[in-house]
Design a protein around this nucleic acid. Structure first.
Length: 359
DNA sequence: GAAAACGCGT
């Protein structure tokens, strides 16, 4: 391109390349290109700024991003709602909600008009941090600014309110949705069913499921998972298994990994590790892949029984299936296997070697 | 012509 007359790369060229490199995880390359464009006299614009700020924020380099933002301000590049969205999401993700709120205020006071996306980023962060009063007040501000919440926005708030047991407010929002013509969707119903199930209101959960079907929304594995989990929590494993068997046959919704995990956990907690093992065999026969959570749940159950040979077998399965241990696996196995003098096998496991044959 | 956001089950 550079060798062609009249074809010199411009700001758009550089921006496209920089965004590509950032998204491919090569932020350094992207920053290098930024310096190169300046050397060549190609002017960075607001989009250049946002590409780099977003890239840095997503790599967890928030303070570098802030430094860069401030440096650009001095050169006359102000930043817009997109810039602030990147910062607000990043700070929410590291649980620094106050900094996110601070930036939101800074945006308003610097006469930068917020758009719907920046509101959503903040509302989601506040809900995640269980600051529901703040989340609701931001959503009110959003509405007074002329935006209306979509179903996803309502779902975020409803979920947060369910988790903090502000159920009056949940009803209020459901009525509001109806009033403004935003239809509850699958996630709305699943959220309600999950909340009711978890708090032991199983008949309420059933009712919501009837409403859901009546409104033409087909229950999915998530819906059944919420119900099954509720019955497990209530200690009624029989009913949970009944729903589990019916979902696959009557409703034709095949159980997935999460549902098997819920049931495996519940059986382990009832000290019925044998049934947990059969469930795990069953899932594999049906082509449902165990996840790291399946393995961790099994290891916890097996440890209670000090059932070492089965654990070694599962460790080998993990290696074969390329299912990587996480910090929870490490915690369980390190504690258990050191206590029984099997650290050599743990070492082999972490090296990705099979452990059963090394008896 | 190039940039951003939000939800349910283990």
């Amino acid at each position: 391109m550079k060798s062609q007359p009249g074809c010199a790369p411009n700001t758009v060229t550089y921006n496209s390349l920089m965004d590509g490199f950032s998204k491919a995880g090569k932020l350094d390359k992207s920053i290098e290109l930024f310096h190169k464009m300046k050397e060549e006299g190609v002017c960075p614009n607001e989009i250049t700024l946002n590409i780099l700020v977003d890239g840095m924020c997503k790599q967890g380099r928030i303070s570098s991003a802030l430094e860069f933002f401030n440096a650009m301000k001095k050169e006359g590049l102000e930043g817009n709602a997109i810039t602030y969205t990147a910062f607000i999401s990043a700070f929410c993700n590291v649980n620094n909600i106050n900094k996110a709120l601070e930036l939101f205020d800074e945006m308003i006071s610097s006469d930068c008009a917020p758009d719907a996306k920046v509101y959503y980023a903040l509302i989601s962060g506040l809900c995640q941090a269980r600051r529901l009063d703040d989340a609701c007040s931001i959503s009110e501000k959003m509405k007074s600014a002329g935006f209306h919440l979509d179903a996803v926005g309502y779902n975020i708030l409803i979920n947060g309110l369910c988790k903090t047991m502000k159920l009056d407010k949940v009803n209020e929002l459901l009525k509001e949705m109806e009033g403004v013509g935003v239809q509850p969707d699958e996630v709305t119903y699943n959220t309600l069913i999950s909340a009711l199930s978890k708090s032991g209101h199983l008949s309420g959960a059933d009712q919501v499921m009837k409403h859901m079907t009546a409104n033409g929304i087909v229950p999915t594995a998530v819906t059944y998972g919420a119900l099954i989990h509720g019955h497990c929590t209530a200690g009624d494993l029989n009913e949970a298994m009944k729903i589990f068997r019916e979902m696959g046959t009557t409703s034709k919704v095949p159980p997935n990994t999460v549902i098997y995990n819920i049931l495996i956990q519940s059986h382990c907690e009832k000290d019925d590790v044998e049934s947990a093992i059969s469930l795990m065999d069953e899932m594999q026969e049906k082509g449902v892949f165990p996840s790291i959570i399946t393995y961790n749940t099994m290891f916890k159950g097996l440890r209670e029984r000090n059932w070492l040979d089965k654990a070694f077998q599962l460790m080998d399965d993990m290696i074969k299936q390329a299912c990587n241990p996480d910090y929870i696996t490490m915690e369980i196995l390190t504690e258990w296997l050191s206590a029984v003098g099997e650290t050599e096998r743990l070492r082999r496991f972490l090296q990705g070697e099979e452990v059963v044959c090394s008896l």
